[in-house]
Design a protein around this nucleic acid. Sequence first.
DNA 1: AGGATGCTTCGATGATGGACGAACTATGCG
DNA 2: CGCATAGTTCGTCCATCATCGAAGCATCCT
Lengths: 224, 224
Amino acid sequence: MREGPDIARIASLVGDPARANMLTALMGGTALTASELALEAGVSLPTASSHLSKLMEGGLLTVASQGRHRYYGLAGPQVAGMIEAITGVAAAVGPQRVRPGPRDAAMRVARVCYDHLAGEQAVAMLDRLVARQVLIRDDKEIRLGPSAVSHFAAIGIDVESKARRPVCRACLDWSVRRSHLAGTLGAAILDKILLEKWARREKDSRAVVFSPLGKQAFERVFLA
Amino acid sequence: MREGPDIARIASLVGDPARANMLTALMGGTALTASELALEAGVSLPTASSHLSKLMEGGLLTVASQGRHRYYGLAGPQVAGMIEAITGVAAAVGPQRVRPGPRDAAMRVARVCYDHLAGEQAVAMLDRLVARQVLIRDDKEIRLGPSAVSHFAAIGIDVESKARRPVCRACLDWSVRRSHLAGTLGAAILDKILLEKWARREKDSRAVVFSPLGKQAFERVFLA
DNA sequence: AGGATGCTTCGATGATGGACGAACTATGCG
DNA sequence: CGCATAGTTCGTCCATCATCGAAGCATCCT
């Protein structure tokens, strides 16, 4: 018999299909209402509500009440990382992945991971930023290089961090198996991409699709 | 409704207390027999056997038959990483962590993670190896530096890789939140440490305790 | 105020799956 | 060959928990 962190409790929370669907939906990064999550999970509203309170109690979710809406979101990057890790194992282990399918292809290229960009594009971007020494990775820690502030300011991104959350963080990409940029900077870059309409989010999916011109712009700015 | 990698299936496998205990026990890295795992999980042999076959079917475990013994082990580093990620969330979320306790302190300093060393010591070691350019980390990928082969040969470690498994891999440390060295090299270093008796494994725990002289030797070789 | 919408709580139902004892198979030992 | 040990399979019992309809709060709109 052993004890310690109650891993079974956390895992069993993710272990229910309805809850797993909800968490996966929240990996998109946008907070969702109880009704939306019920739809997403394919259960009735009361059932969803019950699941949500369990996830809350387990500390996996945060909620923000706005009027009569309650927006549920993942409790933090650590939770998002856990979901990615589980997804990675499930994808590796599952023999059910017969045809990759177009949606999956798009997902591999670029997708939203919690609040930042993931996929091949994101991995390439981090590689390039490190190669140009805009960012410096020491260990797994990623730091800002000397030129970072001016570099990002020129693009219109403010890298000053007020939040307690780190500016840069490495996040393992389950499709490419290498890391991409997370943290407030990662989130700001994704904001920028969507704001400039270089890419749009695929409906009901985490996939992010670049327009031809948007792709050029993105590559000019981040992969040059 | 969504589909994709069946994350609920995997998570629910980990979500049962008995199975979670088994998996946690296997994080020690040594393969265990069904009876040992039954004891570890606190269930009867038939029950354990049933759990083990489920874990096998889920692809989380591998088994090696030797005579009338069947040694069960984690299916791979990816699975070990997932368990670490879940453990991290459980530790962060669990309010039950009242007193850190001596065992936990020892765990933070040095512990076994699947088949390599984790904890503060392990993180410090990787930092130092990278700083000395024995190892080079590009992205999350860690490569051997030019001097690596001779450097490790001098200590008596052969870095040639025959296995399909990578020689170097970064593994996120849930206590320190930075990565340490995994892969065949990480495993070889742990072997070396235990073989030279610089440290011993705490009974019934993943903690690794260095002797005073062993600590000196380890620091001379890896942190110089 | 009154009505509509979003969400939660309650209560009853049903199914999944975890538990163990007993019987069965397989390997090793003398 | 027979006995002991390691492990699996089978059958049954039992508890947990997911599910939904109906009713109860809370908030917004007019």
